[in-house]
Design a protein around this nucleic acid. Sequence first.
DNA 1: AATGAATGAGTATTCATTCAT
DNA 2: AATGAATGAATACTCATTCAT
Lengths: 199, 199, 199, 199
Amino acid sequence: MPSKPKLKPRTKPAEERREDLMNSAERLFLEQGVGATTIEQITTGADVAKGTFYLHFSSKEDVLEALRNRFIASLLENIRQAVDKKKEDDWEGRLAAWCKACVSAYLDAARLHHVVFYEVPPPTREGLTNNVIIDYLTDLLAGGARAKAWSVTSPRLTAVFLFSAFHGVIVEEMTSEKRVSKARLAGEISAHFFRTLGM
Amino acid sequence: MPSKPKLKPRTKPAEERREDLMNSAERLFLEQGVGATTIEQITTGADVAKGTFYLHFSSKEDVLEALRNRFIASLLENIRQAVDKKKEDDWEGRLAAWCKACVSAYLDAARLHHVVFYEVPPPTREGLTNNVIIDYLTDLLAGGARAKAWSVTSPRLTAVFLFSAFHGVIVEEMTSEKRVSKARLAGEISAHFFRTLGM
Amino acid sequence: MPSKPKLKPRTKPAEERREDLMNSAERLFLEQGVGATTIEQITTGADVAKGTFYLHFSSKEDVLEALRNRFIASLLENIRQAVDKKKEDDWEGRLAAWCKACVSAYLDAARLHHVVFYEVPPPTREGLTNNVIIDYLTDLLAGGARAKAWSVTSPRLTAVFLFSAFHGVIVEEMTSEKRVSKARLAGEISAHFFRTLGM
Amino acid sequence: MPSKPKLKPRTKPAEERREDLMNSAERLFLEQGVGATTIEQITTGADVAKGTFYLHFSSKEDVLEALRNRFIASLLENIRQAVDKKKEDDWEGRLAAWCKACVSAYLDAARLHHVVFYEVPPPTREGLTNNVIIDYLTDLLAGGARAKAWSVTSPRLTAVFLFSAFHGVIVEEMTSEKRVSKARLAGEISAHFFRTLGM
DNA sequence: AATGAATGAGTATTCATTCAT
DNA sequence: AATGAATGAATACTCATTCAT
């Protein structure tokens, strides 16, 4: 009897279990909303016992936060890669890349974004303006301004302005019946961005 | 058989009771948040019995909706009055008036707005882009475009873009520590608006 | 159809409901112990809904305290009546009456006493020496001492000494198999009391 | 293939581990109470893994009992030594020694005694009258009676009476604010003992 | 129109105990 | 002998809603 019946290893690396739990939670939150999802459903979905949840998270709000961070990190990574593909001095291209990557990522994960950021009382209001993303845009705007690609007096304010505008349009798009192609939408938004920057 | 010492008439016009209840709810929502406020606290605050609440509203969400509508109606009224003070063909002035009125109203009632629109799972996502206000802005943009005051290809999209941008800047302002004067903020926002419209 | 079908008046005077709940709790605590008794069992036993419990008590510990107070009050009343039946200057008689009333009351309610005072972590250690009863005994001892019926240097200490002694004998008696008549036990205890007082 | 850096021998004699666990448990029970102490805290405090606890004890109640026994054994040893120092026929001295040793031991370990004997639902009511100690006192009283040092009709009853009295006074003393010297307290109690024995 | 006593569904969380290594 | 990841039973409490006066 050499081979162990290792079909169901009771114990898994913590990281893996955590992921299982997060995936299960994400799926359920998406399907039924956060409020309607019980911890028990999450653990059942991850094929572990209820108590195991508390080995990895302290509460429902805790998973939610982990989900938020995962969302943001992945989004930022997407944007960064797209923007970095452009030449360093092609500011127009970089900004357009920002728009395209953002539109794409948001439309793909919009429902998730909505659920984790809007469906529940966020711990702090600042969640409403997704900081890291805006920070990155602020840097981009400031960079372009230094290079005289466009003119911006207050990069932060303009970044908030543009990000919010972008975000609103995305939400509107998700809400309305008629679908628009990603490319088309990205184009429209870029155009507005450029105009706002006086280009 | 003398008359009872009817010092406090138990009964009031329905409309008045409703208002009492709404005011009590608004105060409590603002103070403690929606989730933490119980129906009993609302009725106590309105000086009526618990059951009375259900004579005027069907649930907590119901008052919340009434509060939302009251907020929007009052806001729209403010904007309308400010815009109508301008000459009919002074499109730049009308748009600036829209900004100023909106900034002012939002800053005044920002916490209320946040609580009723963001703190609770909104019944539908559309609550996120406050329709009537955007509708009004759409008309304004379309009007100006017809009069060649500015050029807009898709008034609705641009209205959503601008309103969201405006809203994001307001939220950011509420969140950050440093206060900026209303006039200054309205000015900044108007400037961005004008640029976005290619003026 | 004049007579109302008032068979089951939904609503009862608060005092009565409270009593119902306390009686139900007492019965269950006695039968199964405090820890094993759930709030739901208590309300079922009192023929009301679970929530009703919380209209009258704030927690299980809260009923327990009410039960303790009821026990003490009733016990003290018993003792007082028995002692007051004796002539005011018959100190020996009064002390013997104290013993007899106490033995009788304790043996009758011993299990209850045990459950409410010993089975659960009492909120404060002082519950262990039932204050009011000891206070009363202290007064009795001091009175007799003033009247030269006996000599006591520190009435409080002696009262604690005697009450604890009494209590221990009762518990021992409850625990052991062989039953002794109440009168016999009261006699033994009185004899020890008298001797301790140097009579 | 050198030997492992066996700095911390994973394995200890069972007896020692048991002691470690008991000491950890005692410290925690004293600090936070029995109910608030978890098995995990106990094992952490003893620097072993959770499972190890169950190699030495079957449950929390089981450690508690071990702690009780350790307390009683040590107490009895104290008393025995003190009493045996007196001449065999010095009954008054022996009884006074009993009092003194007992007062001293109890005051030293009163909190521990309280925690292990009173804070938790004792498995049986008899724990309340600490048997071995009372047994020893019973023998002492019977011995003195045989030697005509005092007169006692029912040594067991009187032992229970006196031990309980003693115990109550100790608890009262622990509870009250004002501290009394051990010697003083032992004196008072001895005096009451002697009087109860008709000396 | 108003009351307020009564209802009871709904769930997060803890922690003793097990057992595969 | 020791580990520690996994288990899952068990229960108090809140509060929106009803309905008999």
